[in-house]
Design a protein around this nucleic acid. Structure first.
Length: 194
DNA sequence: AGAGCGATGGCCT
DNA sequence: GGCCATCGCTCTA
């Protein structure tokens, strides 16, 4: 199988309820045709950030940093936290600030590139966290607003995952009790722990 | 498993 | 100028 032939998920998908998008992104493939070569991983962990949610960057209105969240669906919202980049897929129509944070991947393509970028040898250290996977996938601030439905960074239709665990989100202060984190039970070994 | 800490940029006062 | 964050690493046990 050649992932490059898989169809990219189109913007209608990202117009579904953000929680639904977060669940259904599990099992799909994040691809980057990067300057280093083709890199890809299967999404195994996500979090939803919705309207009225104090943990959502968009909850206090639009700023320059979070503007991508208010843009069209299917774009990337990439921001920096504590020296690391994090990748979100923007959901909902333009003007609504919601997104899904991609938290972990199962590496599937370009493992040698990931090893080099991450300076790690164990594949479990490549993409088991939001800041790790952007480094492994060569994604950074320059990719903010990038179109994930076509272009060099895409999310591809791959498979549906049934056994999805729903728990609380990681590393947030506000609304920490809301169960808006999702991960694939079968792929728990690739998931971020903290 | 759990605590401590480095580190950068955005945003508000 | 200061606060704080969708984090990762290392050290201890």
């Amino acid at each position: 199988m050649n992932v490059l032939n898989f169809p990219a998920i189109q913007s209608d998908f990202y117009l579904q309820d953000t929680v639904t998008v977060a669940k259904r992104l599990i099992g799909q493939v994040l691809l980057h045709e990067s300057p280093y070569g083709v890199i890809a991983g299967r999404i195994v962990e996500t979090e939803a950030y919705v309207t009225g949610d104090p943990a959502n960057h968009a909850s206090r209105g639009m700023t320059r940093r979070n503007s991508a969240m208010f843009g069209p669906p299917g774009r990337a919202y990439v921001y920096m936290i504590h020296t690391r980049w994090c990748l979100n897929a923007v959901t909902q129509p333009e003007g609504v600030g919601e997104a899904v944070l991609i938290r972990a991947l199962e590496p599937i393509l370009g493992l040698d590139i990931m090893a080099e970028l991450r300076k790690k040898t164990n594949p479990r250290d490549f993409c088991s966290g939001p800041g790790k996977l952007t480094q492994a996938m060569a994604i950074s601030g320059e990719h903010n607003h990038a179109d994930l439905t076509s272009g060099t960074i895409r999310i591809l239709e791959f498979e549906e995952v049934d056994n999805i665990i729903q728990t609380t989100r990681v590393g947030i202060k506000h609304a920490a009790d809301r169960p808006l984190r999702f991960y694939s039970r079968e792929d728990a070994k690739w998931v971020s722990k903290r």
